[in-house]
């Protein structure tokens, strides 16, 4: 018995030391994975493609994000990211309460055109109370009102070559060598034509506040928060988003976040 106790203690010691060194090296042994060109990272990131295909298979085109009741709106929509863009063109529009604002629909469309805020507000609208899920982990329930994007796309008539929409925004979260990097996002045509995908101009029965993306914010309700671009001025239909930013399809995607953002 005493031999057993000795062995046990010694082995506990060895085991604890081994485990703690394993855990302690866990800290920076894998730091190389943050480099965007790293091969191991690129391999691991293929799992995001699997997620995209699996969810597209399970989701169906029109499965709706859960909608909530009025009583579940218990707070204002938490602003995150840009909350007051400083770009001159945006500041000028804001000063005149966005009367000069135009949403441009362009790219691979038969009939490019632009819309004033009043025009968008006069089109059929959709209101939905949905849960906004930030990639950081928090959630917030709010009521969004806007023009279904599919109506705008039907008017513009997408060319057959169009595969994605790119949303160009006024705000910038980061500065590059040639000036501020403007926020942009993109989505596939399934998300673009989803019934809950709207060009939102209203939040909780009020005009969309500047902190939440005034005058127009895109809502793609089956995706995380960074997929809901604020301060959108242009919707561009493209066959590839390789030529924008670093080619990953969005501001955060260029910094290593997954493009699909469904989980």
């Amino acid at each position: 018995m005493s031999k057993l106790v000795y062995g046990r203690r010694r082995l506990f010691g060895i085991g604890t030391a081994g485990l703690s060194s394993l855990v302690l090296t866990g800290c920076n042994q894998f730091d190389f994975l943050d480099e965007s060109g790293d091969r191991v990272r690129a391999f691991l990131a293929k799992a995001n493609d699997v997620t995209y295909f699996a969810q597209r298979l399970l989701l169906g085109r029109d499965a709706l994000a859960r909608e909530y009741s009025e009583t579940e709106i218990r707070q204002g929509q938490r602003p995150n990211g840009s909350t007051d863009p400083e770009a001159e063109d945006y500041v000028a529009l804001k000063a005149k309460d966005f009367v000069d604002f135009r949403l441009t629909v362009t790219g691979l469309v038969e009939r490019p055109r632009d819309y004033s805020l009043a025009e968008l507000r006069n089109m059929p609208s959709r209101t939905q109370i949905t849960r906004h899920d930030c990639v950081e982990g928090w959630s917030c329930i709010a009521k969004w009102t806007g023009t279904p994007l599919s109506i705008v796309l039907d008017e513009a008539r997408l060319k057959p070559a169009a595969r994605y929409l790119v949303f160009h925004c006024y705000d910038s979260l980061d500065a590059g060598l040639t000036g501020p990097i403007r926020y942009y996002e993109s989505c596939d045509l399934i998300d673009a034509r989803h019934p809950q995908t709207i060009l939102a101009y209203g939040l909780n029965n009020q005009p969309l506040p500047v902190a939440n993306g005034a005058p127009i914010r895109v809502r793609i309700e089956r995706a995380l928060g960074y997929k809901q671009p604020k301060y959108v001025h242009t919707v561009e239909a493209v066959d590839s988003f390789a030529r924008f930013g670093r080619g990953k399809g969005g501001f955060w995607e260029d910094l290593g976040y997954d493009w699909y953002a469904g989980i």
């Binding site: 920076n28 799992a47 699997v50 910094l255 989980i263």
Partner: peptide, 24 residues
């Protein structure tokens, strides 16, 4: 603490890449 995270510094994007690969 940094000793318990991958990567050791704050990097949500990389944490998610690693997490979803091993989740699958």
């Amino acid at each position: 603490p940094p000793a318990l995270t991958i990567p050791s510094f704050q990097d949500l994007a990389t944490g998610r890449v690693v997490h979803f690969f091993f989740a699958w």
